[in-house]
């Protein structure tokens, strides 16, 4: 059981949970995630560790309401318990100092991006961050990202905040303006696909953090398999970050729909 110490609502659909997990708070690195199960009937779902406080022994999780499992978590409050929480999982981000980093986060993808932005900044890089979402309400963690970025660009689909347009438009503007040594893209699979196509054109090395469907998160089931450079890899143990230019995004998007009928039924039952 892991106690929820604090809950902060970012929007109607996105909230941050500060959860008691002292061991993970100490051992986790940027890029790591956890798997949680809310209750005895619950599904195991992966969530990125968006930050931690090793002294207080807490980790931050930012969750967006999608289907049944994320909604069940979303309904919990400070003082409630999460039944199962295991981690840290996955490979940590390779933090180094290439020079200028362009970090692009779409929607709730900004949460997993935060610790990576922080680490790249601390490693001495110049960091330009782009936060993108459908509208103003869905822009999250702006202040936290600003703290670790040299520049922050906001893009919204409807223009309700920042510049109107897709994340790729913002990214291309930056790329044409100055030399970018490395790019990071985290968000919906479609967004990462188009970011990858863009940076490929400009030959900028790019990392994408994949959100494959998972069960155990320990390499035991293969639900999370993804094709990278023509090879089948497991997102949970080989990733979740991969060289974006090698990822078969179309396959990833197809696989994300693998249980959509079953999930739809589950959602109908839940509502």
């Amino acid at each position: 059981m892991s106690l929820i110490v604090e809950k902060v609502l970012f929007s109607e659909k996105v909230a941050k949970f500060v959860v008691d997990a002292p061991r993970i708070a100490r051992s986790r690195k940027p890029g790591h995630f956890v798997i949680i199960r809310v209750d005895t009937k619950g599904e195991r779902i992966p969530l990125t560790i968006a930050g931690s406080d090793p002294v207080k022994g807490t980790i931050d999780l930012v969750v967006q309401k999608m289907g049944v499992s994320s909604s069940k978590l979303f309904e919990l409050n400070a003082g409630d318990q999460i039944l199962d929480l295991v981690g840290p999982l996955g490979k940590a981000t390779h933090i180094h100092k290439p020079g200028t980093i362009l970090a692009c986060g779409g929607g709730v993808g900004v949460a997993p991006m935060l610790p990576i932005v922080e680490a790249f900044k601390k490693a001495g890089n110049r960091v330009i961050s782009i936060l993108a979402a459908r509208n103003k309400d869905l822009i999250i963690l702006e202040d936290e990202i600003r703290k670790w970025s040299d520049e922050v660009i906001i893009m919204t689909d409807d223009g309700s905040y920042g510049t109107k347009g897709l994340v790729t438009a913002g990214a291309e503007m930056v790329i044409q303006r100055e030399t970018i040594n490395e790019c990071i893209a985290i968000g919906p699979a479609v967004m990462m696909k188009f970011m990858s196509l863009l940076t490929k054109k400009y030959e900028i090395p790019t990392q994408a953090s994949l959100n494959a469907i998972m069960v155990d998160g320990t390499g035991m089931c293969g639900a999370c398999r993804v094709s990278v450079g023509g090879k089948t890899l497991f997102t949970c143990i080989d990733g979740p970050e991969f060289d974006a230019h090698q990822i078969d995004f179309d396959e990833l998007i197809m696989r994300l729909g693998g249980y959509s009928d079953e999930e739809k039924h589950a959602n109908e039952r839940y509502l």
Partner: peptide, 23 residues
């Protein structure tokens, strides 16, 4: 899917039962 995934969903996660969230 792998047999591990299939059996884990059914045996560990009770996916065959409608009361449980795992599909």
């Amino acid at each position: 899917l792998s047999s591990n995934e299939y059996l884990t969903r059914v045996n560990l996660m009770n996916a065959a039962s409608d009361d449980f969230d795992t599909p």
